[in-house]
Design a protein around this nucleic acid. Structure first.
Length: 447
RNA sequence: GUGGGUGUAGCUCAGCUGGUAGAGCAUCGCGUUGUGGUCGCGAGGGUCGCGGGUUCAAGUCCCGUCACUCACCCCA
């Protein structure tokens, strides 16, 4: 019986990688995880689903992007509570904190690397299923402000260990534009932010047009644009904002908080943190500090890492657990580096050595060589068939496996060949050393 | 959800004013019966996205539909 020939097609927004690219992604994942653990974040995984009502209203328009989960043969009556796939890792984490508060120690630091789902229209670098690598800290009642500076610095450390090139983490505090807009009489804070955020994309003229169309005066639009134009790697942005002559208590509060974050960044990782007063987006639950990250030279890719502070996401009505976190868009980051910068892994398998098979009678001997190599930490595999050596070498070559091991016949000893150079030398599996740079797949640029 | 573009081999694509499918790359085999990459020869592989219509005849023209894709929205 042959199954019906179902057309095999990709599903838009659900990316799948080839082995070499997945190895690259795993390298990123391992590096990020190592840095997170070096900073003492505890590992956590939450279930993929939450009650839909817990997901709703947390991400602004994200509501309509939530994927619901149901049984195909589910009955209308007596069905399970409505479940939805989480669209980020912060909302489930907030729920987890409430659920386990009695068994956690605060401030609680955790990292979480998982798939999330958003039912939006896919585009280059935007997916419906993707992986986020998230760190957060929550505390009870009050959250120390210095944690807002720590989050981006941890990410910066991870990024410095990865082949992403130069990057810039932009920081803002939502209270700055909020207080500023209120100070100049613009009461639609969210709407104004949404328009101003398009500045880089559509230019100041169109932003002004849209602001005026939304009810702002020319002068209000001018000031809003002037604020969005301010950015600095030091504290000079404070004076620049002051120079615009607007005052409001919320603005003062925001400037103070932002200055503290930028000062800490400038001291601990000069050049990586930049105050950028045009950054204001992200999910609705952010209440203060917000982050966005661009790779220098690839700003059009959008943010590859964002986050912020949320003061009221986790609350049981009596106790509130304010938190701050940041999330690396691993799927977007890796996808764009592969597609746009030609990054990949040097081979399509972890194996560093292919152990050749002389004939099927001696397969066990090849197996013993492989076991010895593995015992010494050298990833290897045994050739699938005792074909001519030319074919066995080609098997390795196609996969990028750098070494082919030839078990000796009769009294002859083993030999190992570096198929890139063609050099072949006597070798003993119990003592041979694989060059460190060949032990694991390396990051390389295609072509 | 709204608007544009595109659907032909595993991949990238050609196929003109309709006349029963082609190239390059990839894969596999042979030349090369323990040593690959080059080169040469050969082979396999297609309901031309799907459904309907026009026609003697449709990959080609018309309608519908689905998928992919780009932009808006929103965001990692």
């Amino acid at each position: 019986m042959t199954p019906p020939a179902t057309k095999v097609t990709p599903i838009s927004g659900f990316p799948e990688l080839l082995p070499a690219d997945r190895l690259l992604e795993l390298h990123f994942l391992d590096t990020i995880r190592e840095v997170f653990e070096l900073h003492g974040f505890a590992p956590l995984e939450t279930r993929a689903v939450e009650p839909v009502e817990r997901l709703l209203g947390k991400g602004g328009d994200a509501d309509k992007e939530i994927y619901g989960v149901s049984r195909l043969a589910g009955e209308e009556t007596g069905r399970d509570a409505d479940l939805g796939l989480h669209f980020d890792l912060t909302v489930p984490f907030a729920r987890y904190v409430l659920e386990h508060a009695g068994r956690l120690q605060f401030p609680f630091r955790r990292y979480q690397i998982q798939k999330v789902w958003r039912g939006e229209r896919p585009q280059e670098g935007r997916f419906r299923e993707f992986t986020q690598a998230d760190i957060d800290v929550v505390d009870v009642g009050e959250l120390a402000p210095h944690l807002e500076a720590e989050m981006p610095l941890v990410v910066a450390e991870a990024f410095r260990r990865l082949p992403v090139g130069e990057f810039r983490i932009q920081v803002n505090n939502r209270k700055v534009p909020e207080g500023f807009y209120l100070g100049i009489g613009l009461t639609d804070v969210a709407g104004t932010l949404r328009v101003v955020d398009k500045l880089a994309k559509i230019g100041p003229r169109k932003v002004t047009e849209q602001l005026v169309a939304a009810g702002a005066t020319e002068e209000q639009a001018r000031l809003a644009l002037a604020l969005a134009d301010i950015r600095s790697g030091d504290l000079s942005f404070v004076d620049e904002v002051r120079a615009l002559g607007v005052s409001h208590p919320t603005l003062d509060e925001g400037l103070r908080a932002l200055a503290a974050v930028v000062a800490a960044g400038a001291e601990q990782a000069p050049g990586t943190l930049v105050a950028d007063l045009s950054v204001a987006r992200g999910l609705d639950y952010y209440t203060g500090t917000v982050y966005e990250t661009q790779l220098v030279g690839s700003e059009e890719w959008g943010s590859v890492c964002s986050g912020g502070r949320y003061d009221s996401l986790a609350s049981d009505g009596r106790t509130t657990y304010p938190g701050v976190g940041i999330s690396i868009g691993l799927t977007r980051l890796v996808h764009l580096l592969v597609a746009k910068r030609g990054l990949t892994a040097s081979r399509s398998t972890p194996a560093a050595v292919l152990v050749a098979v002389v004939d099927e009678e001696s397969r066990a001997r090849s197996g013993r060589v492989a076991a010895t190599l593995r015992g010494r930490g050298v990833p290897c595999e045994v050739a699938p068939s005792a074909a001519r050596f030319g074919k066995q070498i080609r098997y390795a070559d196609r996969r990028g496996i750098p070494f082919v091991w030839f078990p000796g016949t009769d009294d002859a000893g083993d030999q190992v060949k570096d198929i890139r150079s063609g050099e072949q030398v006597d070798a003993d599996a119990a003592t041979w050393t694989c060059p460190a740079q060949d032990l694991r797949p390396a990051v390389v640029t295609r072509d």
